[in-house]
Design a protein around this nucleic acid. Structure first.
Lengths: 235, 235
DNA sequence: TAAAATTATTACAGTTATATTACAGGGCCG
DNA sequence: CGGCCCTGTAATATAACTGTAATAATTTTA
């Protein structure tokens, strides 16, 4: 599932500090201390977000970010730059080169978390820890629990991820192959019909409290989660 | 009670970072950003320990420490100096002037905690934690005891720490690797499966009075301490 | 209406994740 | 030193989940 955040900083103490804050906030994370290591980790297990030090030994953070944004495979991964003070002038340049946000050292854990959440919210809503509630169906990523008016709704891991994805992308149709990509992950070789089966399982789980109708079939296109009212969205 | 640790640093972000780590470790703390403020706070409510920035606007940290050590009333309060890198040469001088220890920025939370513990161990009695009770299961960090309706619940040290952690973070899922980080401590090379075994031991200990169900398995994600299902709060 | 296409349902067996048990080394205390 | 408790590991057992394929039901098309 790889819901990890990658820290790239050559200073181990900084890594540890950030890791500490991330762990506390419930994120998985991994550390690397240079661009090469980072590159390898990114390929091996794509993180949902990269915290990248501005100054790295060898390839600089800026160049590294630029490279990541050039590659098709890594382009989608949001980057938050960690800059030292007095590099204000370079900020805009950094953002131009692909960083999604930046933060100046020393930073407070709360500030860091706020920025991480902000970035994830607009790039990968299902990677945030925000609880969601639609039509009395409540999903809380932090406790990893689904409930309906106080009653726990039981389901398997895949169904949970599927539901989480749907609830963070309500009202939009996704084809089976898109769902495989976005919920199962890229690089999976699974028959599309399998999605049907998991939809079925999810519906069964939701049926207990009468929420199965929230998963809508769009014949010929895929599936869609019910959207309350008219949620017009641009983009 | 005044079991607080005073942070004196003109950089709010640093203060917040330290405070964050302190809070997580169960310490009370308060912040001040200059020597005058600090002086006032120390008089008003003597802390058990002072974390003092080397460089302060106005009166320097070194001078401030010296002054505190001259005063009868404040002499007994241990001081840990926060120094920036490259001030190695001054270290000894700092210690001579009264600091009990020093730590170089940037430092890891664990290192800071280790030093705080070390200093407190040889100066003040342990800072206290609050007792917790969930679903008739009672845990008291001070006496290091767990009980259920008056009956003592026996368990090993690791199980105690694990339970303590869970009870202070109820309702939230933690992966095995997070638990290793947060309960065992970072930098441990322990197989993840070991967590299962300690969970088992903890459950066995709790089973005697029927509390084993409080430790919930979340397949594919980790473990979670019981907490009532979330009610819908959005109207 | 029949055939074709698409989705729903069901059963199942391989796979993976967790629970349980046993054990050996380490540390502590008498 | 010897016994006891604690810890981490590994082996085994058990339980849960997953993907597939076969079949049924439904909708669309001709």
């Amino acid at each position: 599932m790889a819901n990890t955040i990658l820290i790239v900083d050559d200073e181990p103490a900084i890594c540890e500090m950030i890791g500490f804050a991330l762990a506390r906030a419930g994120y998985d994370y991994s550390e690397t201390h240079n661009a090469e290591q980072a590159q390898a980790k990114i390929i091996a297990e794509p993180p949902v977000l990269i915290l990248l030090d501005w100054m790295l030994p060898g390839l600089s953070g800026i160049d590294f970010a630029r490279r990541l944004k050039r590659e098709e495979a890594t382009r989608g991964i949001p980057i938050i730059m960690l800059t030292a003070r007095g590099e204000e002038a370079d900020k805009i340049k950094g953002l131009e080169t692909g960083a999604d946000d930046y933060i100046t050292k020393p930073f407070s854990p709360n500030e860091l978390m706020a920025r991480i959440r902000a970035v994830l919210r607009r790039t990968a809503p299902q990677a945030t820890d925000d609880a969601i509630e639609i039509a009395h169906l409540h999903l809380d990523p932090v406790s990893h629990r689904v409930s309906s008016r106080g009653h726990a709704v039981e389901m398997g891991p895949t169904e949970f991820r599927l539901l989480h994805f749907f609830m963070t992308h309500a009202g939009r149709v996704y084809s089976r192959s898109q769902l495989l990509d976005l919920v199962w992950g890229r690089n999976v070789y699974i028959g599309e019909r399998t999605v049907d089966v998991h939809i079925r399982r999810l519906r069964l789980a939701l049926k207990k409290y009468g929420h199965d109708h929230l998963i809508e079939t769009v014949r010929g296109s895929g599936y869609r989660f019910f959207a309350p009212a008219a949620q017009s969205r641009t983009g």
